[in-house]
Design a protein around this nucleic acid. Structure first.
Lengths: 240, 240
DNA sequence: TCAAAAGTGTTAAATATACACCCATGT
DNA sequence: ACATGGGTGTATATTTAACACTTTTGA
């Protein structure tokens, strides 16, 4: 949808005062990454609104598909951002002026919004991000060093990160951040990054294998120096 | 607020298409109880909407205070009910006819609503429930044998119960269901009810005490047969 | 040949489990 | 006296922790 059309018709298409913000998390170069969209030197999260005909969950999946092209991922509602002062007319005015669109005080986009926060764990190599109608540029930023962000999006990212940290040992969904076939050293380093601490290599491997959710493949990982690690894949068919 | 005023003015007072439903949980006679409101032989959850000037969290606390008179409790957002078909015009018509109020198809209360589900753990003996504008009668029902309920409220209660089951070992917030001063046997029976299984008495007590969150009081529980158990209280001042 | 990375093993400490035992109290 | 409920102890099994050993491979 074009920016112009979005602003004109959005008021009637979507559930009012309700938005979705999605923290899309990937893993590359041994670093956790978050997908951000650029506008005028500052960054924002992929997000959107809920159509009258769709469920909140459907909306979150649609938004993720639109922004990343992905159908496979782990997606979780992690928080509701419901502060009474959660509206951003000043920042909206800035954005409208930059685009060259007419800004009015009483436009729907200036309302106070309750935002439903999702985090998505994705295979960063499979993602094909695209900008939104407002934003052309996107980038994967280190979760540990976030750039200047619009609205309260930095707060949302930080909250998602904390939630992920608490969830990872409980749900064992971290493999969604890795390719279909991955090695135990990869999973080990990933967990070290998520929890931000050293984990005993031997113990980690034994614990992961004792969960009986990963299947060792006959092949070994190619193209890596020194001893080649085994490849594993998640036992269940689909990721979701 | 009166029913008439609520229907007439609600459209402008509240964030549209957003509601709150609160599963208020108590513990009495060794059974988990849920606070329900009666209308025309069927039951519903305490709930409400978010005023434009208040946060979602403030709204949930206001609703809990209005319905129970309580200021001390554990309150947690446990789920967002966002199905696209979540509207109840037929049931609303029934209710309006029973009250003797004019029902119209396009009234705000017939809209599709996204509901934010909270569960509250309360000291049932401290609660002073009151009916809402629609409902006069209230009752504490066994969580295990729910009556006929309006809307999708049974689904919401079941989801809250499951969430509590998963949360209790993790957060150790179950004492909020007991009086200020309680005994280990009480806490033991409470956990058996929440998890719906037998727990070894000796081990349970040792584990709870090893958490170092409860303080043993010099007094013993009075008015109970046989050996009198020690009384404990939660170490931190406030419950929230 | 040796260092780096991966896979596995070994021992000790900490926890969990399944009871047993003793104490206080009411019948 | 004894049955009931409460508090604690003890032996055993399991899990966690720390680190050692071995294998494979590239420099």
């Amino acid at each position: 949808m074009e920016a112009q059309e979005y602003v004109e018709r959005g008021k009637h298409l979507f559930i009012p005062q309700l938005s979705i913000d999605t923290v899309v998390i990937g893993f590359r170069d041994n670093q956790l990454k978050v997908l951000l969209l650029e506008f005028d030197g500052q960054w924002m999260l992929p997000g959107g609104h809920v159509y009258h005909h769709e469920s909140v969950e459907e909306a979150s999946k649609r938004i993720l598909l639109e922004r990343t092209g992905l159908a496979k991922y782990y997606l979780k509602l992690f928080h509701v951002f419901g502060d009474s002062d959660r509206s951003f007319p000043c920042e909206m005015k800035q954005i409208f002026e930059k685009i060259g669109m007419a800004w009015k005080e009483d436009i729907w986009i200036n309302d106070r919004y309750v935002s439903i926060g999702y985090y998505a764990l994705v295979d960063i190599e499979q993602a094909k991000p695209t900008g939104s109608s407002f934003t052309q540029k996107y980038a994967w930023h280190d979760l540990k060093s976030l750039p200047e962000m619009w609205f309260d999006h930095e707060k949302i990212v930080v909250k998602a990160h904390k939630t992920l940290e608490g969830d990872v040992s409980l749900h064992q969904h971290s493999f969604n951040l890795l390719p279909e076939k991955f090695t135990m050293p990869q999973l080990h380093q990933l967990h070290e990054q998520i929890l931000d601490k050293k984990l005993d290599r031997s113990r980690f491997q034994k614990k992961m294998l004792s969960l009986d959710i990963f299947e060792r493949l006959p092949e070994l990982k190619e193209g890596v120096p020194y001893k080649r690690p085994y490849l594993y894949k998640f036992k269940r068919e689909s990721r979701v």
